[in-house]
């Protein structure tokens, strides 16, 4: 048995070659991902790199154009609708139901599963207590602070006992102090409940401080996967190096990596493109060149037409970054 096959057998989640396009924008371009049971995996990448899209595909809220495999705990999920998947999501802006109390929000997942009233109330109270919200059961959502809403969203996802917990920028809107407590909360929950968590963030520090493994994404593709130390100390591409700390790649071991190196040169067309405020200062191109794509047959023709103009700009660039 190869080591790759062994990993796949141990994996709680196995996704292979997932391609998702919104119109002509390729949000996910051949993404593969394996998550082991009980691990906290962080998907790290600049905004617009496809992190939210990937979580939505895992949750079943988005249907990819292609997916060679998508299994959770060995079961094929590709034809399973969102409400039957063993996942639960904490959304980027929480998406708490405004017409229900905090307690009723937490109970909702149990209510649709037909859990009797008394039992679901007990479970909801326990989940709220776990997140230090025991006295907020009857509060309306608009009477809660940002950090409290965050934790209610958490409790709501936890009570359904998902096999896989998906967190979309869970600390995005919180200040430093709340961030630290919540980070500890997430870690404690994951360890005490043996929960498998996939977390999305654009913050390097968040990813480094709490992950078992990090997957770095850029322009809809996975560019590196590894333990936090590996990614920090041995970034495989200039993009990852810049994103993780601003330095050069640690080393450049294999010839096979060279196309990737070439892929990340700055190109004039990319410099002219308007970019997101958060990534405006980033010294890497906002998109991979066309050559880096290819695993998603569904839209190859369409994107080729689109990128004809950009290819011309590419040809005019000075060559000082070229390897060899």
């Amino acid at each position: 048995m190869t080591s790759a096959a062994r990993l796949r057998d141990a994996a709680l989640l196995h996704a292979k070659n997932i391609c998702l396009a919104h119109g002509t924008v390729a949000a996910l371009d051949g993404v593969s991902l394996d998550v082991r049971a009980g691990e906290l995996l962080t998907i790290l990448g600049p905004s617009g790199s496809g992190k939210t899209s990937l979580l939505r595909v895992l949750a079943g809220l988005e249907t990819p154009q292609t997916a060679d495999a998508l299994t959770i705990d060995g079961a094929d999920m590709r034809a399973v609708p969102a409400h039957l998947r063993p996942t639960a999501t904490v959304f980027q802006h929480y998406a708490l139901f405004p017409h229900l109390t905090a307690g009723a929000n937490v109970e909702y997942g149990l209510r649709v599963r037909g859990v009797p009233r008394a039992a679901r109330r007990a479970q909801a109270e326990r989940a709220l207590a776990l997140l230090r919200l025991a006295d907020k059961y009857d509060r309306r959502i608009d009477q809660l602070s940002g950090g409290e809403r965050q934790r209610v969203a958490f409790a709501r996802a936890l009570v359904t006992r998902p096999l896989l917990l998906l967190l979309d920028e869970p600390m995005g809107a919180l200040d430093e102090r709340l961030r630290a407590t919540l980070e500890a909360d997430i870690r404690a929950l994951q360890q005490s409940q043996g929960m498998t968590i996939v977390q999305v963030t654009h913050s390097r520090d968040e990813a480094l401080s709490m992950s078992d493994r990090i997957v770095v994404m850029h322009a809809g593709r996975v560019v590196q996967t590894g333990a936090p130390e590996d990614i920090f100390e041995r970034p495989s591409t200039r993009f990852v190096a810049a994103f993780m700390g601003g330095g050069e790649p640690h080393r450049w071991p294999h010839r096979a990596d060279r196309p990737a190196w070439r892929a990340h040169r700055l190109r004039r067309a990319d410099l002219r493109r308007p970019v997101d405020r958060r990534t405006a200062a980033a010294p890497w191109p906002a998109r991979l060149p066309r050559r880096a794509r290819g695993s998603c047959p569904a839209w190859r023709g369409r994107l080729r037409r689109q990128s004809a103009g950009r290819r011309r700009a590419h040809a005019e660039l000075p060559r000082h970054h070229a390897p060899d």
Partner: peptide
């Protein structure tokens, strides 16, 4: 629209999402 998605994600079939989340809104 993310409220309906959250409900689906929590396990509510389409009709429940309509009754519990969308109609009250």
């Amino acid at each position: 629209p993310s409220l309906a998605e959250a409900a689906r994600d929590l396990g509510a079939p389409p009709l429940r999402v309509l009754c519990d989340i969308e109609l009250p809104a």
